[in-house]
């Protein structure tokens, strides 16, 4: 038990939390934007994989980590656009489109990996690059704080920044206003000349772009290679975090950190002879419990509302 507390309050644990929360933050912002526009994007998982591999391949061939990142984000956006086409133009159910993208992401990346790296498990034969780590200017001077907050991969800071950006986009810009209107009452938006299709396309493309960042971080930051199914459900957890966070950027961020902490804990606890599988299960259980609590609170609010009415 002492050891347990020691882990939680250690500096390296704080650092690890930020490190594992980064992809969740990106992906959950993707979940948030599409959810705000009234489309549920369960393909975040698949898009992350596609982007992660794209980043590795492009950075290996161009020897530019930045180009790799751009390519990853572009791949994510394009996948988002393809989903939008399927669901809005061809009228494929959005959930099943998501299932399809996840399948293509899981299988297609392995297929492509073999073509370029001649390995079906890992991309280590490719000389791919990682994005740089950054020492924060003033903060890196402060002891303890510096060890937790400084020296992360650049994308970790971008992720935190992206929460702010998403907040501004959704709540402070005309497009954000239209996104929220479309998601809540598309007839209302339509009746004043807002193009519902255009807004949903925008949301899905942005959602894909964020998943693209998440994927790039996985293969060019979190680790320095691509491996088969390396996201292990992070896209789904991001979806749950968004649901648990009540669809607000702040709530979603908090939920992400809860999951991130659970994951970091599971990584640390593995050294403690706590059964690893049990520990690995923590984030998923936390998600379900969180979701249940959130829903039950919402359900009781609705009931109360109805009772006041009667």
């Amino acid at each position: 038990m002492d050891k347990f507390i020691e882990i939680i309050f250690s500096v390296s644990f704080g650092y690890a939390v930020l490190r594992v929360t980064t992809p969740l933050l990106f992906a959950s912002m993707g979940a948030l934007i599409s959810d705000k526009a009234g489309v549920i994007n369960i393909a975040l998982e698949g898009i992350m994989l596609i982007a992660a591999l794209t980043g590795v391949i492009v950075s290996a061939f161009t020897q530019s980590a930045f180009l790799g990142l751009m390519a990853a984000v572009l791949a994510g956006s394009l996948t988002g656009a393809a989903m939008a086409y399927a669901s809005l133009n061809l009228k494929t159910d959005i959930i099943l489109s998501g299932v399809a993208v996840n399948l293509i992401g899981a299988g297609g990346t392995v297929f492509a990996l073999y073509l370029v790296a001649h390995d079906k498990g890992i991309s280590s034969s490719l000389r791919s690059l990682v994005l740089p780590k950054v020492a924060l200017p003033i903060i890196s001077q402060i002891p303890v704080i510096s060890d937790i907050f400084s020296g992360h991969n650049i994308l970790t800071y971008v992720a935190i920044l992206s929460v702010v950006l998403v907040y501004i986009l959704v709540y402070k810009t005309p497009v954000g206003l239209q996104i929220r209107a479309v998601g809540e009452n598309s007839h209302a938006a339509d009746s004043v000349g807002v193009s519902v299709i255009k807004i949903k396309y925008t949301a899905l493309i942005l959602s894909g772009a964020f998943a693209g960042f998440a994927g790039a971080y996985m293969s060019m930051g979190y680790v320095s290679w691509f491996s088969k199914n390396m996201t292990v459900g992070r896209g789904f957890i991001a979806l749950a975090a968004e649901a648990m966070g009540g669809g607000t950027p702040l709530g979603t961020t908090i939920a992400c950190f809860v999951f991130g902490a659970a994951e970091a804990l599971s990584n640390s606890l593995q050294s403690l002879r706590v059964p690893t599988e049990f520990v690995q299960m923590i984030p998923y259980v936390v998600t379900v419990v969180g979701l249940a609590l959130y829903s039950s609170r919402k359900a009781s609010q609705i009931k109360k509302h109805l009772r006041n009415r009667g």
């Binding site: 206003l177 239209q178 929220r180 209107a181 809540e184 009452n185 209302a188 938006a189 004043v192 807002v194």
Partner: peptide, 16 residues
């Protein structure tokens, strides 16, 4: 044809 979670002003200018 209104969006409930938006303010009155936001609903009025929506689309313009």
């Amino acid at each position: 044809m209104l969006v409930p979670s938006l303010t009155v002003a936001e609903n009025i200018v929506l689309g313009a």
